[in-house]
């Protein structure tokens, strides 16, 4: 338990180890720890930022979605209107066409009737002449009696 030269030896070791620690142990380890702490702090900040960005992107996306929906509704509305219009046009055209066809048919019918009447008339005149011939037993000179015949046919 006596104090002796050991004390001096230990003191030398002590100084050597402290100097070693000061030069080769403490600075690199604390440096690495500090850098890691900074890195983690940066990472957390980046995560926060990313979260914020995500929030904003979501907002923008929903806004765009809303816009797109409105646009689509507008387009549909227009399409519907256009469709209605087309249907309306088609209807009108069809009606016009029908009217035209009807008018044409009517005029044709009238023509036909007139023609038939004319024919009938001429036939009636012929019939009347031939009937009169038979009755009279003589030939009726058509040219002689044409005035009377015409009068007759006009009465028909």
């Amino acid at each position: 338990m006596s104090i002796n030269f050991t004390l001096v030896g230990q003191m030398v070791f002590f100084i050597v180890f402290v100097l070693f620690c000061m030069k080769y142990v403490w600075p690199p380890i604390t440096q690495a720890m500090k850098e890691r702490a900074d890195k983690i702090a940066d990472g957390l900040a980046a995560a926060d930022r990313a979260e914020h960005d995500l929030e904003m992107a979501k907002e923008r996306a929903s806004e765009q979605l809303k816009e797109a929906k409105a646009e689509a509704a507008k387009i549909i509305e227009q399409a519907k209107k256009r469709g209605d219009q087309m249907v309306e046009d088609a209807k009108r055209k069809a009606q016009e066409e029908a009217e035209r066809v009807r008018v044409a048919a009517e005029s044709e019918v009238e023509q036909q009737v007139a023609k038939a009447r004319e024919e009938l008339r001429s036939q009636v005149a012929a019939l009347a002449v031939s009937g009169a011939e038979r009755i009279l037993g003589d030939t009726v000179d058509a040219s002689k009696h044409s005035a009377m015949l015409d009068k007759l046919s006009a009465e028909l």
Binding site: F17, F20, Y24, P27, P28, I29, M33, R36
Partner: peptide, 16 residues
């Protein structure tokens, strides 16, 4: 032992 142990860690100290 202390010096070698700590210095070896210090040399390879990674920030990861």
């Amino acid at each position: 032992l202390f010096c070698l142990l700590f210095a070896s860690v210090a040399r390879k100290a990674s920030t990861g």
